[in-house]
Amino acid sequence: MLVFAKKKSVQQKIESLKKATSIGFVPTMGALHKGHLSLIERAKKENDLVVVSVFVNPTQFDKQEDLINYPKTIEKDLSLLKSVFCDIVFAPSAHEIYANNITSQAFDFDGLEFQMEGKFRTGHFDGVGTIVKRLFEIVKPTKAYFGEKDFQQLQIIRTMVKKHQIPVKIVGCDIYREDDGLAMSSRNTRLTKAHREAAPFIYKTLKQAKVKFGTENALDVVGWVENEFKKQPLLELEYFEIADEETLQTIKNKDIKQKYRAFIAVFAGEIRLIDNISL
């Protein structure tokens, strides 16, 4: 496994290995867990070369304290990457990516950026678009792998790739869960014991909402979920929405020709957790 901190070095290495080679790319912010490793394992199966980036991107944090508190575990991350036979790791500094101008590019994601997470995290998706576009330009992957836990982000990246005509195939991968159903996240390590014990309620409620959506209208399902969370003193519901998978627009009435997904954001103490489920 080769580790690079400089754009030029990693580009030169990839270029030297690129002849008739497919490149799988997994962008991460480090604090790796089994969910990340599952993306890398899939990339290994589908490509000749796998590149993983480890970079805590400052422009996608809407709160400075979240950036400061985000877990940084580079030594452990490198050990995990080695265990799944990652070929190349790109772990740049913020200066290497942004020089002296740590700001986001402004994007138009066809309105996807104004739904759900966009309502609560100002500028977040411009930051995501900025870093992912720059990493694509550096690595030039054949395929890039993203988990469906951040489904809105996945759809936004698909839109960006299409609009900017970036030659990469975006692959969405199933949400990787703990044994009790909690979606794996780097933030889970920051949960208190009590909040960690309460958190599986999120996925349990999503599964029940999915069943209800089969026979009830969307607004009634939303109302039911909101009431369920009122009974949970350790979990505070920020939003629960049922949306069209393509447009991410909140729906009021079902259309059998459309695909829908339920999205949720919950505070467990100070830690914000998100999840979703296909309906």
Rank of each mutant, 00 (worst) to 15 (best):
F4N: 01
A5D: 10
A5Y: 15
S9V: 08
Q11E: 09
Q11Y: 04
K13V: 04
S16V: 00
S16G: 09
S22R: 06
I23M: 00
F25T: 10
V26Q: 10
T28H: 10
M29H: 06
G30V: 08
L32T: 09
L32H: 15
G35Y: 00
E41Q: 05
E41H: 02
R42N: 10
E46S: 09
L49H: 08
L49P: 04
V52Q: 07
N57H: 11
F61R: 11
F61L: 09
F61I: 03
Q64G: 06
E65C: 09
E65T: 15
D66F: 09
D66L: 12
L67C: 10
Y70R: 13
Y70M: 14
K72W: 04
T73Y: 07
I74C: 05
E75S: 10
L78V: 07
S79K: 11
L80V: 14
S83R: 14
V84T: 07
C86E: 05
I88W: 00
V89Y: 13
F90D: 02
S93R: 08
A99E: 14
Q105P: 11
Q105T: 15
A106C: 12
G111R: 02
G111N: 07
G111F: 07
L112M: 13
F114L: 11
E117P: 02
H124D: 12
V128F: 09
G129W: 14
G129H: 13
T130N: 12
V132Q: 14
R134Q: 15
R134E: 14
E137M: 04
I138T: 05
V139Q: 06
V139D: 02
K140V: 05
P141F: 00
P141Y: 02
F146R: 11
F146G: 15
E148M: 04
D150I: 02
Q153M: 15
Q155E: 15
I157S: 03
I157P: 03
K162W: 08
K162Q: 13
K163Q: 01
H164R: 02
H164Q: 12
I166K: 10
P167L: 03
I170M: 06
G172E: 08
C173Y: 07
D180V: 05
G181A: 05
M184P: 05
S185V: 03
T189R: 10
T189H: 07
H195D: 07
A198D: 01
T205Y: 00
L206E: 01
K210G: 06
K212S: 05
T215V: 14
A218W: 05
L219N: 14
V222Q: 00
G223N: 12
W224P: 07
N227F: 00
N227D: 12
E228D: 04
E228Q: 13
Q232C: 01
E236F: 13
E236I: 04
Y239A: 04
E241H: 10
I242P: 08
A243E: 00
E245V: 14
T247F: 06
T250Q: 09
I256T: 14
K257L: 15
A262D: 11
V266K: 13
F267D: 15
E270C: 10
I271V: 10
L273T: 00
I274Q: 02
N276W: 01
N276M: 04
S278F: 12
L279Y: 11
L279W: 11
